[in-house]
Simulated assay, not measured.
Amino acid sequence: MQRGNFSVVTEFILVGFSTFPHLQLMFLLFLLMYLFTLLGNLLILATVWNERSLHMPMYLFLCALSTSEILYTLAITPRLLADLLSTCHTIAFAACVSQMFFSFMFGFTHSFLLTVMGYDRYVAICHPLRYNVLMSPRGCAFLVAWSWVGGSVMGLVVTMAVFCLNFCGPSEIHHFACHVPPLLKLACGTNVPIVALGVGLVCITALLGCSLLILLSYAFIMAAILKIPSAEGRHKAFSTCASHLTVVIVHYGFASVIYLKPKSPQSLEGDSLMGITYTVLTPFLSPIIFSLRNKELKTAMKKTFLSKLYPEKI
Rank of each mutant, 00 (worst) to 15 (best):
A92I: 04
K185L: 09
C188H: 08
I125E: 00
A145I: 08
S103A: 13
I288K: 03
S307V: 09
C178G: 05
C164L: 13
L62H: 02
K303D: 09
G270M: 10
Y310K: 13
V8N: 15
L143M: 12
D271I: 01
L213D: 07
L143S: 04
F102G: 02
A187C: 07
A161G: 05
P21G: 06
V153F: 12
F12L: 03
A95T: 08
G151H: 01
L60Y: 10
D83Q: 11
L54V: 05
P57G: 04
L80I: 06
A219D: 12
V144D: 02
K313L: 14
P265S: 07
T73G: 05
V48S: 01
G275K: 01
H175P: 00
L32W: 10
L207F: 09
K261L: 14
V202L: 13
G4P: 02
S18G: 06
L43M: 14
C210V: 05
K313R: 14
A223K: 15
T47M: 06
F305R: 04
G155L: 04
F102L: 15
A206K: 01
F108L: 09
V280A: 04
F36Q: 10
P182F: 00
T90S: 13
C178H: 01
K261Q: 13
I228T: 11
L28P: 04
L74C: 08
Q2F: 10
L114P: 03
V280H: 02
S286F: 07
S103C: 10
F93P: 00
C164I: 06
V250I: 13
R138T: 11
A196I: 01
S267H: 09
C96K: 03
F6R: 08
I221F: 04
E51H: 08
F36R: 08
V248F: 05
A224I: 05
S66D: 04
H55E: 10
M117L: 12
A46S: 14
L208C: 14
R138V: 12
A95I: 03
L45I: 15
G209S: 14
E312H: 15
F106W: 09
M1N: 11
S147N: 08
G118Q: 03
H175W: 02
